[in-house]
Design a binder for these strands. Structure first.
Length: 646
RNA sequence: GCCGACGUAGCUCAGCCGGUAGAGCGCGUCCUUGGUAAGGACGAGGUCACGGGUUCGAGUCCCGUCGUCGGCUCCA
């Protein structure tokens, strides 16, 4: 048999007989490697270990130290799930079972839904299969034979997939144990015994191909890791995410509520949440004024005709509250602030000397979100955008975009975010007619966005053909505590509305020109940003944002007057202070203040009253000793003024 | 909007195979005045989400509505 040359990652070359499997090559290198190998990479492509090598190639073995093997491993775990399910519930029909960022799932069809108890049973069976180390075997079978067999078994989804995805004479299936064969491209790990750590997490409804007119499936979610340690760390993260959930903390810290009587997706800000909001808004308004924005305020409703002009009444109709009829005409609750700011712009004749015009508003809008999509503060029906619209000349565009990017970065910095990603969404270069605006406009806008990001050293992922129909945009996304990505800041050009509203300014040439228009929101909405903030800080807001910055805790009732005096002194300096005057033991009061995540607890008893001091306890650092109220202010006020993060 | 689970005191939850509602925390009163994460006693508090139905009898079973949660889809 002729030899072929196998190149290994260290550059060395092995001569092996043609048809030697990757696994044999690994065995030739070391027993340990053969035992550890999960999947082989041949000329850059991941393949099963038992694939015969037919030509000169470079080969690498991936073990549980390689992230790319994890995907294969999880894919195999999905097969394990399906195999176990079939053993227990043979009537189940299989859809697809891919790996995901966090684990894997398998979509399955069965008349009766799986219960959590079923999941436990399935998981136990999975462990049995792992124990008997069932092999994952790839088999090539004639396509029509496979189709006929799956047809006979009623595996309608498999049939559909094979019909759609293949046209070769033979297709590949993977077998695990007796019952399970799955149409699958692979690769897979050699046997199920290699799966060391997995857990089924939940079951949820899904549709075949995501189409709600198609069969209802059950999606079983699970996760798998190379090591038990990593699995428990992951489960711990999920617990932590639950602990930080803004809906739970919002209730515990009395920040906000959603009232069934009022309706879903409508937020009630309680005094404590309201305080945080006020502080946030004060900061933002200050920034806006400094940066040359005009602060405006506009109504919540307008005649339907305005929304006809803007186009929303047609293309945004499904997302709006239904119009209401008044004596003179239909009125529409606003889903966006843009038309209102445009009306302000249009209210007088504008000269190029007036530009840029920057109009900002904390504008409350209402959108009809479908009933199943509401989620705490993160997806609601009524929310306040920190919205602004900039009208400028083409020459001013780049500077304006840079200004927006700078403010967006300042928002991230001040609120303590370091983890974010940026996307630049562009058009299709004019290949379709789905985009408004001219090629020149798109070019100018996209170039200015790209340049602004480059000048600020921000790495952005370009997303071709992902722009809004009216213009290109930059989106900044944050990752929250549960790993969900939330879009907050957005900077968008608009070539559509200026045309629809005939916006103009008089240029130096004495003629009318159409201004460039930029929408931008930095928090996205006050509600969403607040929700992300709650989870980000796990409810322990930095002092400058904390609704109660310090609580004075008298040791006994006799010390309440002194405590009140101290609180007043601190309050006079603008500190948000409360006194816990209940007849409770100090330990109890401290416990409550800790649970409420109050940054500073000021214990006052006889010693403090005599010495004119307070004993400072920091929520994280504990008891830091006695100081005078004035000294306490000296340490705290600078933290507040500088908006220190912790 | 779709699928599934859930909805019991202010909060967190128990309540079996249908027989007229419970705990802890919180709240109120009283006792206690205690020095860095829960002192004690007593008490008030519920149209069991809402509307129908089955039944001698419904928190419990059935249907519908509303809401919440997990997903799907959606989020120009």
């Amino acid at each position: 048999m002729p030899n072929i040359a196998v190149t290994l990652p260290d550059g060395s070359e092995l001569q092996v007989a043609r048809g030697t499997t990757a696994l044999r090559v690994a065995e030739g290198i070391s027993k340990g490697l053969a035992r550890a190998a999960l999947v082989a990479e041949v000329d850059g492509e991941l393949v099963d270990l038992d694939v015969p090598l037919e030509a000169d190639s470079s080969v690498r073995f991936l073990t549980n130290r390689d992230e790319r093997a994890l995907e294969v491993y999880r894919h195999s775990a999905a097969h394990l799930l399906a195999a176990a399910t079939l053993e227990l519930y043979p009537e189940t029909k299989l859809g697809i079972g891919p790996p995901t960022d966090q684990g894997f799932y398998y979509d399955m069809y069965r008349e009766t839904p799986f219960t959590p108890a079923d999941l436990e049973k399935i998981e136990r069976r999975m462990r049995e299969i792992v124990k008997r180390d069932a092999k994952n075997q790839r088999v090539w079978i004639p396509r029509d034979e496979a189709l006929a067999e799956y047809e006979r078994q009623g595996e309608f989804m498999k049939c559909e997939l094979i019909t759609e995805k293949t046209d070769e004479a033979r297709i590949s299936v993977y077998k695990t144990g007796e019952l399970f064969t799955d149409f699958c491209r692979g690769p897979h790990i050699p046997s199920m015994g290699r799966i060391k750590a997995f857990k089924l997490l939940s079951v949820a409804g899904a549709y075949w191909k995501g189409d709600e007119k198609r069969e209802r499936l059950q999606r079983v979610y699970g996760t798998a890791f190379f090591r038990k340690k990593d699995l428990s760390a992951h489960l711990h993260r999920l617990e932590e995410a639950k602990r930080r959930d803004h809906r739970k903390l919002g209730k515990e810290l009395d920040l906000f509520s959603i009232q069934e009587q009022a309706g879903p997706g409508l937020i009630f800000w309680h005094p404590k949440g309201g305080t945080i909001r006020r502080v946030m808004e004060d900061w933002l308004r200050e920034q806006l004024v400094e940066r040359g924005y005009g602060l405006v305020s506009t109504p919540h409703v307008a005649r339907h005709g305005l929304w006809k002009t803007s186009g929303h009444a047609d293309f945004y109709q499904d997302d709006m509250f239904k119009p209401m009829e008044l004596d003179d005409s239909l009125y529409q609750l606003k889903p966006m602030n843009c038309p209102f700011h445009i009306l302000i712009y249009k209210n007088g004749l504008r000269s190029y000397r007036d530009l840029p015009v920057r109009l900002a508003e904390l504008g409350t809008v209402y959108r009809y979100e479908r009933s199943g999509v509401m989620h705490g503060l993160l997806r609601v029906r009524g929310f306040t955008q920190d919205d602004a619209h900039i009208f400028c000349t083409p020459e001013q565009v780049e500077g304006e975009v840079i200004g927006c990017v700078d403010l967006a970065m300042e928002v991230l910095r001040v609120f303590g975010f370091t983890d974010f990603s940026v996307e630049l969404s562009t058009w299709d270069g004019g290949q379709s007619d789905k985009y408004a605006g001219t090629a020149e406009e798109w070019d100018l806008a996209e170039t200015s966005l790209r340049e602004a990001l480059r000048k600020r050293g921000i790495d952005a992922k370009e997303m071709p053909d992902e722009a809004a129909f009216y213009g290109p945009k930059v989106d900044i996304k944050l990752v929250d505590a549960i790993g969900r990505s939330w879009q907050l800041s957005t900077i968008q050009f608009d070539f559509n509305l200026p045309r629809r509203f005939d916006l103009e300014y008089i240029g130096p040439d004495g003629k009318a020109h159409q201004p460039m228009m930029v929408h931008r929101a930095l928090w996205g909405s006050v509600e969403r940003f607040f929700g992300v903030l709650i989870e980000h800080y796990a409810g322990a807001f930095p002092v400058w944002l904390a609704p109660v910055q310090a609580v004075v805790l008298p040791i006994t009732d006799r010390h309440v007057p002194y405590a009140t005096e101290v609180a007043k002194e601190l309050g006079n300096e603008g500190l948000r202070v409360e006194v816990d005057s209940r007849s409770e033991k100090i330990g109890f009061k401290i416990r409550e203040a800790q649970l409420q995540k109050v940054p500073y607890m000021l214990v006052v008893g006889q010693r403090e009253a005599d010495g004119g001091t307070v004993s400072v306890r920091h929520r994280k650092r504990g008891n830091t000793g006695a100081v005078t109220p004035a000294q306490f202010l000296e340490t705290v006020l600078p933290l507040i003024r500088s908006r220190e993060a912790s």
